[in-house]
Amino acid sequence: MANAVSVPATKEMRMQEALREALRSEMARDERVFVMGEDVGLFGGAYGVTKGFVQEFGEQRVLDTPISESAIVGLAVGSAINGMRPVVEIQFADLLPLAMDQLASHGARYHYMTGGRVNVPMVIRTKFATRAGGGPSHSSCNHGAFIHFPGLKIAMPTTPADAKGMMLSAIRDPNPVLFFESHYLYGVRGPVPDGDYTVPIGKAVVRRPGKDLTIVTCGGMVLKADAAAEQLQAKGIDIEIVDLRSLAPLDKETILTSVAKTKRALVLDEGPLIGGLSAELAALIQENLFSDLKGPVVRIAAQPIPPPHSPPLVDAMIPDVDQVVDAVMRMAEGGKLS
Protein backbone atom coordinates (compact mmCIF):
# COMPACT_ATOMS: atom_id res chain seq x y z
CA MET A 1 0.00 0.00 0.00
CA ALA A 2 2.47 2.62 1.19
CA ASN A 3 4.43 2.93 -2.01
CA ALA A 4 2.94 6.11 -3.47
CA VAL A 5 5.06 9.24 -3.05
CA SER A 6 3.33 11.07 -0.25
CA VAL A 7 2.56 14.72 -0.85
CA PRO A 8 1.69 16.35 2.45
CA ALA A 9 -1.97 17.24 2.56
CA THR A 10 -2.74 20.93 2.99
CA LYS A 11 -5.70 22.99 4.08
CA GLU A 12 -6.54 26.56 3.09
CA MET A 13 -6.70 28.84 6.07
CA ARG A 14 -5.96 32.29 7.45
CA MET A 15 -2.95 33.09 9.60
CA GLN A 16 -4.95 33.10 12.83
CA GLU A 17 -6.15 29.58 12.13
CA ALA A 18 -2.65 28.40 11.30
CA LEU A 19 -1.36 29.88 14.54
CA ARG A 20 -4.21 28.28 16.42
CA GLU A 21 -3.39 24.91 14.89
CA ALA A 22 0.26 25.21 15.92
CA LEU A 23 -0.48 26.35 19.44
CA ARG A 24 -3.18 23.79 19.96
CA SER A 25 -1.11 20.83 18.80
CA GLU A 26 1.84 21.98 20.88
CA MET A 27 -0.32 22.35 23.98
CA ALA A 28 -1.60 18.83 23.41
CA ARG A 29 1.93 17.50 22.85
CA ASP A 30 3.75 19.35 25.62
CA GLU A 31 2.06 20.03 28.91
CA ARG A 32 4.59 22.71 29.81
CA VAL A 33 3.04 24.98 27.19
CA PHE A 34 0.40 27.41 28.42
CA VAL A 35 -1.08 30.66 27.15
CA MET A 36 -1.56 33.86 29.07
CA GLY A 37 -2.78 37.34 28.21
CA GLU A 38 -5.67 39.76 28.25
CA ASP A 39 -8.92 38.25 26.93
CA VAL A 40 -7.24 35.00 25.76
CA GLY A 41 -9.74 32.83 27.67
CA LEU A 42 -13.47 33.03 27.07
CA PHE A 43 -13.01 35.55 24.26
CA GLY A 44 -10.30 33.53 22.52
CA GLY A 45 -7.82 36.38 22.26
CA ALA A 46 -8.22 39.76 20.62
CA TYR A 47 -7.90 38.13 17.16
CA GLY A 48 -9.39 34.72 17.85
CA VAL A 49 -6.11 32.79 17.92
CA THR A 50 -6.89 31.03 21.21
CA LYS A 51 -10.57 30.44 20.47
CA GLY A 52 -11.82 27.29 22.18
CA PHE A 53 -8.63 26.81 24.20
CA VAL A 54 -10.10 27.43 27.62
CA GLN A 55 -12.79 24.83 26.94
CA GLU A 56 -10.23 22.33 25.70
CA PHE A 57 -7.31 22.89 28.07
CA GLY A 58 -8.93 24.50 31.11
CA GLU A 59 -8.24 27.69 33.01
CA GLN A 60 -4.95 26.41 34.42
CA ARG A 61 -3.38 26.50 30.99
CA VAL A 62 -5.31 29.40 29.47
CA LEU A 63 -4.91 32.36 31.77
CA ASP A 64 -6.90 35.54 31.36
CA THR A 65 -4.81 38.23 32.98
CA PRO A 66 -5.41 41.67 34.40
CA ILE A 67 -4.22 44.59 32.24
CA SER A 68 -0.63 44.44 33.44
CA GLU A 69 1.69 44.01 30.47
CA SER A 70 4.90 44.49 32.40
CA ALA A 71 4.02 41.81 34.93
CA ILE A 72 2.53 39.50 32.29
CA VAL A 73 5.85 39.42 30.46
CA GLY A 74 7.77 39.32 33.73
CA LEU A 75 5.76 36.33 34.93
CA ALA A 76 6.30 34.65 31.58
CA VAL A 77 10.05 35.08 32.03
CA GLY A 78 9.92 33.59 35.51
CA SER A 79 7.68 30.68 34.61
CA ALA A 80 9.87 29.91 31.60
CA ILE A 81 12.95 29.88 33.78
CA ASN A 82 11.17 27.51 36.14
CA GLY A 83 10.16 24.84 33.68
CA MET A 84 7.18 26.12 31.69
CA ARG A 85 6.80 27.21 28.06
CA PRO A 86 4.61 30.33 28.20
CA VAL A 87 3.02 31.77 25.07
CA VAL A 88 1.86 35.29 25.86
CA GLU A 89 -0.46 37.49 23.83
CA ILE A 90 0.16 41.24 23.96
CA GLN A 91 -2.80 42.73 22.12
CA PHE A 92 -0.81 45.06 19.90
CA ALA A 93 2.78 46.10 19.43
CA ASP A 94 2.22 49.57 20.92
CA LEU A 95 1.92 47.84 24.29
CA LEU A 96 5.32 46.15 24.10
CA PRO A 97 7.07 49.24 25.47
CA LEU A 98 5.08 48.77 28.69
CA ALA A 99 6.88 45.46 29.11
CA MET A 100 10.17 46.61 27.66
CA ASP A 101 12.25 46.19 30.80
CA GLN A 102 11.08 42.65 31.48
CA LEU A 103 11.47 41.70 27.85
CA ALA A 104 14.65 43.44 26.79
CA SER A 105 16.65 43.88 29.97
CA HIS A 106 15.59 40.66 31.68
CA GLY A 107 14.16 38.00 29.38
CA ALA A 108 16.59 38.64 26.56
CA ARG A 109 19.66 38.69 28.78
CA TYR A 110 19.32 35.80 31.20
CA HIS A 111 21.02 33.19 29.07
CA TYR A 112 24.12 35.26 28.38
CA MET A 113 24.43 36.99 31.72
CA THR A 114 24.15 33.77 33.72
CA GLY A 115 26.82 32.06 31.68
CA GLY A 116 24.15 29.86 30.15
CA ARG A 117 22.82 28.57 33.48
CA VAL A 118 19.37 30.14 33.13
CA ASN A 119 17.23 29.95 29.98
CA VAL A 120 14.00 31.70 29.02
CA PRO A 121 11.97 29.59 26.57
CA MET A 122 9.00 31.89 26.05
CA VAL A 123 7.01 33.31 23.15
CA ILE A 124 5.47 36.78 23.11
CA ARG A 125 2.89 37.15 20.33
CA THR A 126 1.73 40.55 19.21
CA LYS A 127 -0.16 42.17 16.35
CA PHE A 128 1.20 45.16 14.45
CA ALA A 129 0.47 47.41 11.47
CA THR A 130 0.03 51.11 10.87
CA ARG A 131 -3.53 51.63 9.71
CA ALA A 132 -6.22 54.28 9.69
CA GLY A 133 -8.34 54.48 12.81
CA GLY A 134 -5.67 53.03 15.07
CA GLY A 135 -3.90 56.25 15.90
CA PRO A 136 -0.92 56.95 18.09
CA SER A 137 -1.52 54.22 20.68
CA HIS A 138 -2.81 51.45 18.43
CA SER A 139 -0.80 51.23 15.25
CA SER A 140 2.91 51.34 15.89
CA CYS A 141 5.39 49.34 13.84
CA ASN A 142 8.10 49.23 16.49
CA HIS A 143 9.65 45.90 15.49
CA GLY A 144 12.86 47.68 14.53
CA ALA A 145 13.37 48.79 18.12
CA PHE A 146 13.73 45.19 19.27
CA ILE A 147 16.64 44.30 16.99
CA HIS A 148 18.77 46.32 19.41
CA PHE A 149 18.52 43.63 22.05
CA PRO A 150 20.77 40.61 21.65
CA GLY A 151 19.27 37.48 23.11
CA LEU A 152 15.82 38.14 21.71
CA LYS A 153 14.70 36.23 18.62
CA ILE A 154 12.19 38.01 16.41
CA ALA A 155 9.83 36.19 14.07
CA MET A 156 7.56 37.83 11.50
CA PRO A 157 5.84 35.23 9.35
CA THR A 158 4.16 36.24 6.11
CA THR A 159 2.20 33.17 5.03
CA PRO A 160 -0.14 30.98 7.07
CA ALA A 161 2.14 28.00 6.42
CA ASP A 162 5.16 29.85 7.80
CA ALA A 163 3.11 31.11 10.72
CA LYS A 164 2.38 27.57 11.80
CA GLY A 165 5.89 26.25 11.25
CA MET A 166 7.53 29.23 12.89
CA MET A 167 5.20 29.13 15.87
CA LEU A 168 6.18 25.51 16.49
CA SER A 169 9.84 26.51 16.22
CA ALA A 170 9.30 29.44 18.55
CA ILE A 171 7.65 27.39 21.28
CA ARG A 172 10.38 24.75 21.10
CA ASP A 173 13.16 27.33 21.12
CA PRO A 174 15.06 27.65 24.41
CA ASN A 175 15.18 31.44 23.93
CA PRO A 176 12.65 34.26 24.17
CA VAL A 177 10.95 34.75 20.82
CA LEU A 178 9.02 37.90 19.97
CA PHE A 179 6.44 36.94 17.39
CA PHE A 180 5.05 39.76 15.22
CA GLU A 181 1.76 39.12 13.42
CA SER A 182 0.75 41.67 10.78
CA HIS A 183 -2.79 42.97 10.82
CA TYR A 184 -2.63 43.09 7.01
CA LEU A 185 -1.70 39.42 6.78
CA TYR A 186 -4.40 38.15 9.14
CA GLY A 187 -6.93 38.32 6.34
CA VAL A 188 -4.87 36.47 3.71
CA ARG A 189 -5.60 32.80 3.19
CA GLY A 190 -3.04 30.22 2.10
CA PRO A 191 -2.33 26.49 2.09
CA VAL A 192 -1.05 25.05 5.36
CA PRO A 193 0.43 21.56 5.53
CA ASP A 194 -1.18 19.12 7.95
CA GLY A 195 0.75 17.68 10.83
CA ASP A 196 3.92 18.60 12.62
CA TYR A 197 6.58 20.58 10.78
CA THR A 198 8.82 23.48 11.66
CA VAL A 199 10.06 26.51 9.79
CA PRO A 200 13.31 27.68 11.35
CA ILE A 201 13.64 31.06 12.99
CA GLY A 202 16.52 32.96 11.46
CA LYS A 203 15.92 31.83 7.90
CA ALA A 204 14.70 34.24 5.21
CA VAL A 205 13.10 33.09 1.97
CA VAL A 206 13.14 34.26 -1.63
CA ARG A 207 9.44 34.91 -2.12
CA ARG A 208 9.74 35.80 -5.77
CA PRO A 209 12.79 34.99 -7.88
CA GLY A 210 14.09 37.66 -10.25
CA LYS A 211 17.31 38.88 -11.77
CA ASP A 212 17.28 42.68 -11.96
CA LEU A 213 16.81 44.04 -8.46
CA THR A 214 16.25 42.71 -4.94
CA ILE A 215 13.59 44.07 -2.63
CA VAL A 216 14.39 43.10 0.95
CA THR A 217 11.29 43.36 3.09
CA CYS A 218 9.12 41.71 5.72
CA GLY A 219 5.60 41.44 7.16
CA GLY A 220 2.72 43.21 5.45
CA MET A 221 5.14 45.01 3.13
CA VAL A 222 5.75 41.74 1.29
CA LEU A 223 2.28 42.16 -0.21
CA LYS A 224 3.13 45.65 -1.43
CA ALA A 225 6.50 44.53 -2.77
CA ASP A 226 4.76 41.81 -4.70
CA ALA A 227 2.18 44.19 -6.15
CA ALA A 228 4.99 46.52 -7.20
CA ALA A 229 6.92 43.62 -8.73
CA GLU A 230 3.88 42.71 -10.82
CA GLN A 231 3.67 46.24 -12.22
CA LEU A 232 7.40 46.30 -12.85
CA GLN A 233 7.29 42.97 -14.62
CA ALA A 234 5.00 44.59 -17.17
CA LYS A 235 7.69 47.25 -17.67
CA GLY A 236 10.29 44.56 -18.21
CA ILE A 237 11.94 44.73 -14.79
CA ASP A 238 12.40 41.42 -13.02
CA ILE A 239 12.26 41.80 -9.24
CA GLU A 240 13.48 39.35 -6.64
CA ILE A 241 11.80 39.59 -3.23
CA VAL A 242 13.57 38.46 -0.08
CA ASP A 243 11.08 38.01 2.76
CA LEU A 244 13.07 38.17 5.97
CA ARG A 245 10.58 36.15 8.07
CA SER A 246 12.92 36.67 11.03
CA LEU A 247 14.48 39.94 12.09
CA ALA A 248 16.73 38.30 14.66
CA PRO A 249 18.81 36.40 13.98
CA LEU A 250 19.00 38.03 10.57
CA ASP A 251 19.62 35.68 7.65
CA LYS A 252 22.53 37.55 6.13
CA GLU A 253 23.34 34.78 3.72
CA THR A 254 20.02 34.81 1.88
CA ILE A 255 20.02 38.61 1.68
CA LEU A 256 23.59 38.89 0.44
CA THR A 257 23.31 35.99 -2.00
CA SER A 258 20.32 37.65 -3.62
CA VAL A 259 21.86 41.10 -3.85
CA ALA A 260 25.18 39.68 -5.08
CA LYS A 261 23.16 38.26 -7.96
CA THR A 262 20.94 41.26 -8.82
CA LYS A 263 23.46 43.96 -7.79
CA ARG A 264 20.68 46.36 -6.87
CA ALA A 265 18.83 46.50 -3.59
CA LEU A 266 15.79 48.31 -2.29
CA VAL A 267 14.91 47.91 1.36
CA LEU A 268 11.22 48.25 2.19
CA ASP A 269 10.00 48.50 5.80
CA GLU A 270 6.76 49.49 7.51
CA GLY A 271 8.70 50.71 10.55
CA PRO A 272 10.18 54.22 10.90
CA LEU A 273 12.94 55.20 8.50
CA ILE A 274 15.25 56.64 11.12
CA GLY A 275 17.39 54.28 13.16
CA GLY A 276 15.36 51.27 12.19
CA LEU A 277 15.48 47.93 10.41
CA SER A 278 15.92 49.52 6.98
CA ALA A 279 19.09 51.30 8.11
CA GLU A 280 20.50 48.05 9.44
CA LEU A 281 19.78 46.22 6.20
CA ALA A 282 21.19 48.96 4.00
CA ALA A 283 24.37 49.05 6.06
CA LEU A 284 24.68 45.28 5.94
CA ILE A 285 24.40 45.21 2.16
CA GLN A 286 26.79 48.08 1.54
CA GLU A 287 29.40 46.80 3.96
CA ASN A 288 29.47 43.44 2.25
CA LEU A 289 28.76 44.15 -1.39
CA PHE A 290 29.90 47.72 -1.99
CA SER A 291 31.99 46.99 -5.05
CA ASP A 292 29.36 44.71 -6.60
CA LEU A 293 26.54 47.21 -6.33
CA LYS A 294 25.45 49.15 -9.40
CA GLY A 295 23.98 51.92 -7.30
CA PRO A 296 23.28 52.91 -3.73
CA VAL A 297 20.90 50.84 -1.65
CA VAL A 298 17.58 52.66 -1.54
CA ARG A 299 15.35 52.66 1.54
CA ILE A 300 11.60 53.10 1.67
CA ALA A 301 10.12 53.10 5.14
CA ALA A 302 7.57 54.90 7.25
CA GLN A 303 7.87 58.66 7.59
CA PRO A 304 9.22 59.62 11.01
CA ILE A 305 5.97 60.77 12.59
CA PRO A 306 3.80 59.12 15.26
CA PRO A 307 1.18 56.90 13.61
CA PRO A 308 -1.81 59.16 12.91
CA HIS A 309 -5.53 58.43 12.92
CA SER A 310 -7.04 59.91 9.76
CA PRO A 311 -6.72 57.88 6.52
CA PRO A 312 -4.97 60.51 4.34
CA LEU A 313 -2.34 61.07 7.05
CA VAL A 314 -1.73 57.34 7.37
CA ASP A 315 -1.48 56.96 3.61
CA ALA A 316 1.13 59.69 3.55
CA MET A 317 3.11 58.03 6.31
CA ILE A 318 3.46 54.43 5.21
CA PRO A 319 5.10 53.14 2.03
CA ASP A 320 2.77 52.43 -0.86
CA VAL A 321 3.08 50.45 -4.06
CA ASP A 322 3.52 53.48 -6.33
CA GLN A 323 6.39 54.70 -4.22
CA VAL A 324 8.16 51.36 -4.67
CA VAL A 325 7.52 51.32 -8.41
CA ASP A 326 8.77 54.91 -8.78
CA ALA A 327 11.88 54.21 -6.74
CA VAL A 328 12.74 51.15 -8.80
CA MET A 329 12.23 53.12 -12.02
CA ARG A 330 14.66 55.75 -10.74
CA MET A 331 17.16 53.10 -9.70
CA ALA A 332 16.85 51.60 -13.15
CA GLU A 333 17.72 54.91 -14.80
CA GLY A 334 14.62 55.36 -16.86
CA GLY A 335 13.64 51.73 -16.79
CA LYS A 336 16.79 50.29 -18.34
CA LEU A 337 18.60 47.70 -16.28
CA SER A 338 21.71 45.99 -17.45
Binding site: A132, G133, G135, P306, P308, H309, S310, P311, P312, L313
Partner: peptide, 16 residues
Protein backbone atom coordinates in the same frame (compact mmCIF):
# COMPACT_ATOMS: atom_id res chain seq x y z
CA UNK B 1 -14.30 61.51 11.98
CA UNK B 2 -10.61 62.22 11.32
CA UNK B 3 -11.31 65.71 9.99
CA UNK B 4 -8.69 68.44 9.69
CA UNK B 5 -10.67 70.73 12.00
CA UNK B 6 -10.74 68.17 14.81
CA UNK B 7 -9.06 68.77 18.16
CA UNK B 8 -5.97 66.89 16.99
CA UNK B 9 -6.26 67.86 13.30
CA UNK B 10 -7.21 64.27 12.56
CA UNK B 11 -3.94 62.96 13.93
CA UNK B 12 -5.29 61.46 17.11
CA UNK B 13 -8.88 60.35 16.70
CA UNK B 14 -11.17 60.28 19.69
CA UNK B 15 -8.70 58.36 21.84
CA UNK B 16 -5.86 60.82 21.46
Amino acid sequence: MGRAEGYSKGRGGKMH
